[in-house]
């Protein structure tokens, strides 16, 4: 009688990672500002705005927000997720006589104050007891602007990827 029970246990797939979805919920918003020549605006992960050499005009500001949703596929025991977050290459963008470049990426993730493009950051999500574990995080950055002429509406892509390294 022992053997059939054991076989049944082995045939039952272990709780496994069914799905991981990373969603970009909110843009990194720098608002509108004037730049005589060169200047920078920093929007922190908490939304703090710091200007250097720019003149505020208007418009909403705020950090980008991403949400990780991990469907563990079943099971009710709390698990800890270990996830790698990677910010891809973020190059400068030019439009007309205006060039903008992002740098100094910050997050509000515990233990991950900085994101460096191309360098993985490891994130731990402890005590997930629901089927779908979610975690939202915000990303801020410094935008350096050089304006030779005219104005511009700059849009700079922020490619972010996440990989589940372990479910503990």
């Amino acid at each position: 009688m022992l053997a059939p029970i054991a076989l049944t246990l082995l045939a039952t797939p272990p709780a496994r990672a069914d799905n991981l979805v990373l969603t970009a919920n909110q843009q990194l918003r720098y608002g509108s500002f004037a730049v005589p020549g060169t200047g920078s605006r920093t929007v922190s992960a908490t939304g703090l705005v710091t200007d250097s050499g720019v003149l505020p005009v208007s418009g909403p500001t705020g950090p980008a927000q991403f949400t990780l949703a991990f469907d563990r596929g079943g099971g009710s025991n709390p698990v800890t997720l270990v996830i790698q977050v990677l910010l891809g290459s973020v190059g400068p963008v030019s439009q007309g006589g205006v060039t903008g470049a992002l740098s100094a990426f910050t997050t509000d993730l515990p233990g991950v104050p900085l994101l460096v493009p191309g360098q993985a950051a490891i994130l731990s999500l402890p005590s997930c007891a629901t089927r779908i574990c979610t975690r939202s995080f915000r990303v801020g950055a410094r935008l350096d602007v050089t304006r030779a002429s005219g104005g511009a509406a700059l849009t700079i892509p922020l490619p972010v990827s996440a990989t589940v390294l372990a479910v503990l």
């Binding site: 969603t23 970009a24 843009q27 720098y30 509108s32 418009g59 903008g100 892509p157």
Partner: peptide
């Protein structure tokens, strides 16, 4: 996912 940063200069 690809987010975006937007600014109006």
């Amino acid at each position: 996912a690809i987010g975006t940063a937007q600014a109006e200069v």
